[in-house]
């Protein structure tokens, strides 16, 4: 899809309160362009509660309900039921939540909404830690990454929420990356065309949290894909498909080494060579898993 088909209208207005180079803001701008003005947003406690700007102004040119941290998917459930009951079936109800509000404190509500099949687009912008409170480890922080609560590196693994959501057998799961707006447009529009709960998980580079210069956001986001750390894919009614540049990265020789992604970020500065090798191994194992899924689908004629 050519870039020129992107709608001109800006629904995320100038004067918002995001940090320079904020990945979430780049994502949100494209997401709102894809969805258009008939979009009701629900935002739990997160950077975006601040990015929206202080009362009485707002940087969002769509109706927006701020809600408590754990409550966004449930609030969206009630909202979409109400809008349909009141005769509004022509609108999108979108949750826009961070990784803490999704993979940790908001997971119960999200799981419930998914099981009930509410007609919601749930988007997690994953900056891989509690950034709004000042870089604390979340369930989505990658292994070994520095945060203020993992000063010597995260001992845990990153929760694989897209897989957890796919296991709910919802109609659509996909990953997004701010370096690939066409992929965003395609997936968000597709999500909007499907009834039920759609789960989109977006990598959201964060200059202050990941410790890099704010001009590098798109470069780092792109390297995340090119090294295979971040995989662009969709699970459409149970069928897994790689998208964008990730389509060509099953072959390891086509992936850049993960160190290229890691070395630009201060949060990985403390890593030893062995640490980097271990992360490389984890990334390769994930791709082997993907390769197995694709082979299995091929065998089954999917």
């Amino acid at each position: 899809m050519a870039h020129r088909v992107f709608p001109k209208e800006e629904l995320l207005l100038k004067g918002h309160a995001a940090c320079p180079g904020c990945g979430a803001t780049v994502l949100l701008r494209h997401v709102l362009k894809a969805l258009g003005p008939k979009t009701y947003m629900v935002i739990p406690a997160s950077c975006s509660s601040v990015i929206a700007g202080p009362y009485p102004k707002t940087a969002f040119s769509v109706p927006l309900l701020h809600i408590a941290f754990a409550a966004s998917a449930a609030a969206a459930s009630g909202m979409v039921e109400a809008l349909e009951k009141l005769g509004r079936r022509d609108v999108n109800v979108v949750v826009w939540a961070g990784d803490g509000g999704t993979v940790d404190i908001g997971l119960q509500a999200l799981s419930g909404a998914a099981e009930r099949g509410h007609n919601i687009i749930y988007i997690c912008y994953d900056n891989e830690a509690y950034m709004n409170t000042g870089i604390q480890k979340s369930g989505s922080t990658p292994p070994k990454a520095w945060t203020t609560t993992t000063p010597t590196g995260n001992p845990g693994f990153k929760k694989d929420l897209p897989s957890i959501m796919a296991a709910h057998r919802i109609p659509y799961v996909a990953t997004l990356n701010p370096a690939y707006p066409n992929d965003i447009l395609y997936k968000v529009r597709k999500a909007a065309s499907i009834r039920g709960l759609k789960y989109l998980h977006a990598l959201s580079p964060c200059p202050p949290g990941w410790r890099y210069d704010s001009r590098l956001t798109v470069k780092i986001a792109r390297l995340a894909v090119e090294t295979g750390v971040w995989v662009l894919y969709e699970v459409d009614h149970g069928v897994f498909r790689l998208t964008g540049p990730s389509k060509h990265l099953v072959d390891k020789s086509r992936r850049k080494p993960v160190v290229e992604y890691l070395k630009l970020q201060g949060r990985f500065r403390h890593l030893s060579e062995e640490d980097v090798e271990e992360i490389q191994r984890m990334v390769d194992e994930n791709w082997e898993r993907i390769s197995e899924i694709l082979k299995d689908q091929e065998k089954r004629g999917v």
Partner: peptide
Amino acid sequence: VESEHSAMAAVIGASSV
């Protein structure tokens, strides 16, 4: 819903529109 927290959140979402 799957909890009371979500019950109140759902009616908040509904009432807000």
